[in-house]
Design a protein around this nucleic acid. Sequence first.
DNA 1: TGAAATGTTGGGGCG
DNA 2: ACGCCCCAACATTTC
Length: 457
Amino acid sequence: MNIWWIRRDLRLEDNQALTVALNAGTGVVPAFILDEHLLAKPAEKRHGFLFEGLRALDEDLHRLGSRLIIRRGDPVEEIANLAAEIGAGSVFAEQDVSPYSLQRDSAVAAKVNLILVHGLGIHPISLITKSDGSPYTVFTPFSRAWKALPASDHVLPAPASLPAIPGFASVPLPLLPAPDSFPAGELEGRRRLNAFLAGPIFDYEAGRDRPDLNGTSSLSPYLRFGMISARKAAAAARQASRLVPDAQSRAGCESWLNEIIWREFYQSILYHFPYVLKTAFKPSMRSIRWRNAPEDFQAWKTGLTGYPMVDAGMRQLAATGWMHNRSRMITASFLVKHLLINWQEGESWFMQMLVDGDPASNNGGWQWTAGTGTDAAPYFRVFNPILQGQKFDPDGIYIRRWVPELRNVSTKYIHAPWEMPESEQKNASVIIGRNYPAPIVDHQFARQRVLKAYSNG
DNA sequence: TGAAATGTTGGGGCG
DNA sequence: ACGCCCCAACATTTC
């Protein structure tokens, strides 16, 4: 018997670790270790999503004649114990990139025959380097090298059946449910991919920037836990692109594929530069004097900054465990640039709240926004939350959805409600400073302040 | 995957 | 006819 050690590949279709394990013969025991170290970190929605995903996977395994063995504790001990218990020859697992997983896996490999299999990304990180072998640190050349590799559109089918598992002990999963907006499981991942490919992907070029429209795939949590394989998603996007005649639709597909490549770019960055989880990628950006401002941070977290576009994003995050990408940029920029609070505080909050929270992508995004990272936004690029709102939520639909106090505010004032005359405030049944805060910081002032802080840093 | 400040151009009103 | 001013529209530069 061998072990298929599941970590963030909760799927049966296009699972290379599972396939290799099956091909090794002699039977496969699917196992998941509830890692105390990881579960101790606050991330209720993501954990609920994971647990529900494991329940769904267990059901799928039952259907094929197998089942999921769950253990709890330190994975190094638990995998070694399980391997000894079942007399496992080898342990097969999908290779991960975070420093924690690298250290964990090398500790496991010291105790059992651990075989790590590619599959988290589409192309192995080792294949995408500059000609001298060093890693790319700029997205565009990285993506060119990525696209130059032969497209691997082959998707491994889910096995038709699996070997039965003898009566090994398994601990129950915590009952924590997945958030309502994200039912977990491979089936739901596939459903969402198909729904996205049936239309929205063709408008993705513009649609992806509009938090008021459902223009994105909302697949991020499923990709995060491998409930859909990135390779299958990309193959489907390429196929969709080939089937449409017009350039605009093809651009949508291409643009979405680029987002998949961003994901792998940041995986590569984390793999090669693990210190980014601790400090700025750019050494020159490590001496910025951040503000210690707990009240401002609290206002940001709770969506009470007085800037509707920022507050809408933060409340969407708190309510659903997900935030539209455009809103992620706007809210992150606001924390770092307007409030001058260390991007690492925001990174940590997002990791607590996000269902799709992934160290590589989340860190990459925050360092990009803060201007401290690879291929980052220049520090002087300061988003104006009012203009961003006007551009990307022109009718204020997104704001009214997530900031109900402003529901009756006219579109004219929806992005800057503090400019409402008193009579308008009464009409809209919202008094600025009472039912909705006045801006906690003036835009022009904040802009000048952050430019100064960065240029001194 | 910016925004603001500054510069340039050109049409129109006007004396 | 002409210069002047205003200002929108666009372009460039600066942060």
